[in-house]
């Protein structure tokens, strides 16, 4: 499955917000914490694993600049 960085980051922001607001039970806090750190590590992994792929589609006899 392709990594959805934007979605992960959005969830991460949500988690930070929930943690900052506080008021969560301790158990929930720890759950959010581990979800957050898991997201961070999957995002890091995504960024690190990247290697640029270039695909060239040719047109029918293009002239150059």
């Amino acid at each position: 499955m392709e990594h959805n960085y934007e979605k992960s980051l959005a969830r991460l922001e949500e988690i930070v917000k929930l943690l900052e607001e506080g008021g969560q039970p301790l158990e929930k806090t720890l759950e959010l914490f581990s979800e957050g750190t898991a997201l961070i590590s999957s995002c890091s992994k995504y960024l690190d694993s990247a290697e640029q792929k270039i695909t060239t589609l040719m047109n029918n006899g293009g002239t150059d600049e």
């Binding site: 960085y5 990247a50 290697e51 640029q52 270039i54 589609l57 293009g62 002239t63 600049e65």
Partner: peptide
């Protein structure tokens, strides 16, 4: 390549002039 090697680049060659 420098800023965001994560992205795939798809080039469609076109006649520009």
């Amino acid at each position: 390549g420098r800023r965001f090697p994560v992205a795939q680049v798809v080039v469609r060659s076109a006649k520009v002039q």
